[in-house]
Write a protein that binds this DNA or RNA. Sequence first.
RNA 1: GGAGAAAUGGCAGAGUGGUCGAAUGCGGCAGUCUUGAAAACUGUUGAGGGUCACACCUCCGGGGGUUCGAAUCCCUCUUUCUCCGCCA
Length: 423
Amino acid sequence: MLQVAFIRENKDLVIERLAKRNVDASQMINDVITFDDDRKRLQTELDKTLAESNTLSKEIGNLYKSGEVEKANLLKEKTGQLKDTSKELTENLGSTTEALKELLYKIPNVPHDSVPRGNSDLDNEEVFKAGDIPTLHHGALPHWELAKKYDIIDFELGNKITGAGFPVYKGKGARLQRALIAYFLDKNTAAGYTEYQLPLLVNEASGFGTGQLPDKEGQMYHVTEDDLYLIPTAEVPGTNIFRDVVLSESELPVGITGYTPCFRREAGSYGAHVRGLNRLHQFDKVEIIRVEHPSKSYQALDGMVNHIKDILKALKLPYRILRLCGGDTSFASALTYDFEVFSTAQDRWLEISSVSNFETFQANRLKLRFKNSDGKNELAHTLNGSALALPRVLAGILENYQTEDGIVIPELLQPYTGFKIIN
RNA sequence: GGAGAAAUGGCAGAGUGGUCGAAUGCGGCAGUCUUGAAAACUGUUGAGGGUCACACCUCCGGGGGUUCGAAUCCCUCUUUCUCCGCCA
């Protein structure tokens, strides 16, 4: 959620930048300012009424004490009128504030200067590419065929137990998955992130804090009996650690990492691109989250990008980094880099990480602040990224490391798996 | 799930209808003293709205009510604690 003060002071910039998302925000921005003007006017009127009422109440108290009951009763009539006025003003103020808030919820974050204008993933900008695309033997298979051939992931069994998009990992497949989780967590903690184990269900306030609610509830599984939501990413419980928190400046930066399963309804997804591990309702992910001083958040974003590069380099996977265009950047993000691994047997790029700087957009909702050097509370910047999302990394490993003899486990994972080949 | 108790500032903890945004202690910050530090002493120290700045308004777990006036009384929800039950 953008701050009204920021919108007021940077009206033209906000409109111009939101155009990168193909959003014409001029009407909304003008409405925000109008609503806020109304809000201020009503607040001032209400304050005046309440001030008068407070003064009278004190007088009435004094009059009672000195036994001047008649005078007191006279004043009571007056306060009765003030009460009606203040009630009306309170209602108007409430509806105006509500309208303002609802409007603010609809306005996406202002993209960073470097974000290219664009409509879809076709307009994303490739900023980095590394790793060699292997030449596979004749008859190389996509990962879902490999999964069946070596009996390491059973999609049909998942269908039976739950439904589509809930695969069952078996034997060496399960072990490889666990190895990857452990490896990622080790890399992240070595880079200074503190490991957390987080709840997999969150309440409404948390969903709201990171922006899944009120608009995107269709993406989350909702346990209506208890009014809880299954997390779509560890970002939700992880970032909500800092809801309603005031940090001291010396506590910054904060870095946390956590492994969680993620649950996504993915309503409306279908087709060849969702085959196998490409798109699931339940998948595993290791997330990194940072809280940063506003002056250092972009430096931190670069740091996160480099950290993920290191991991992919160590895994020797071919990958590229995209700077997302305005139209493809998520609602709350100011700047997002996507990491994609090349899935050789499918001959396509698969997104395995998304790293974003939200600036104050989330912090404003969360009321996540720090006490700055002037002793004032100031909104912090939040960032997060996947390091990494499991299924597509797994797909990439299975497909890129396949040989005629089996799937060779990347060397640095072997201590975690306890085996060198799946065959 | 049943019975009872509680929720106040960073923390502890007073406050049971007006003079309470709230005693006191601890902690934090600034100063005095000291070569420096500790101790001691003095001052200061919640958040949001509003204003050029003041004034002023709101907030004592959330919501609603009674009253001229609520931290204080009533209703309700949530959470915590104790006891019982169930249980990995």
